[in-house]
Amino acid sequence: MKPSGPLFTLLAGLLLGIFMLSLNATTGPRATSSSNDVTATPTPTPAAPSASTAPPTSPSPTAALPADSDYAGRTADDSASVAVSVRDGKAIGYFCDGRSRESWLKGDVKDDGSMALSGTDGARLDGVLRAGRIDGTVKVGDRTRQFTAAPAVKPSGLYRATAEVRGAKIVGGWIVLQNGRQVGILNRDGKPAAAPRIDPASGAVTVDGTRLTARPVVP
């Protein structure tokens, strides 16, 4: 007996479905690439700067020398006084024993604070300005003495007076030390002698009955 038409059609569809299922299970889905896939590129880590590429270190600035300053002190043997006035790289020095020997000296102050001042008859002052004072030697005549001069704030410092009194040429030099002590020489026509005291506040001094004014010395 032959199967009817609908039954045959159902059986054929069932066989086709079984065949398709078997085919899918065998082959499996094909992998596809997506246009949205992005390949990540690693970001390089910046290298630490080497010692050779590090910026150079700027040298520390050199302390500037004081443009305007005055110094006064005693020689190491305490036999004389020394004063130095400094202005803009120039210096004037004065050596005085307060009795009969003196010398005025002048010269330049170098950037490192050293100075070599010269005076008449071979007088010489060599010093170095550092740490707020001048240390050095002064040669007057046949003797060389060591000295130290500390900052001199007015009224201490170096003073000078020049005038003509009763027909005589007067030249006076004074060093006023920090403790108020005065050391000076007064020349009358080139003859030295101990100088009278000055008034440090005004510079007033009386010489042979004539009132003079001793003024601070600057280069």
Rank of each mutant, 00 (worst) to 15 (best):
L125F: 03
T162D: 13
A83R: 02
N36G: 06
S69D: 13
R130D: 14
D142S: 14
D189W: 09
S156L: 08
P44Y: 03
Q146S: 15
A25F: 11
S79C: 04
A193C: 01
V82K: 03
G113S: 04
G73K: 05
G122I: 02
D111V: 08
Q146N: 14
S58W: 02
T57M: 08
Q146Y: 08
T120W: 09
V207Y: 01
P55V: 10
D97C: 07
T144A: 12
F147C: 06
L212K: 00
A67F: 04
S34F: 09
L186Y: 00
T144N: 09
L158F: 15
Y71F: 15
F8K: 13
G180F: 09
Y71H: 07
S100H: 10
T210R: 13
G209A: 07
V84C: 07
G132A: 05
M115D: 02
L15Q: 09
S114V: 00
L186G: 00
P61C: 08
G172T: 02
P42D: 06
G136V: 03
V153K: 14
T57L: 12
S118F: 03
Q182F: 04
I134H: 02
V218E: 11
G157D: 00
G73C: 04
V140E: 01
L65P: 14
S33F: 13
G73H: 04
G203N: 03
E164S: 15
V109D: 02
S81R: 14
L23S: 12
P44T: 06
A25N: 10
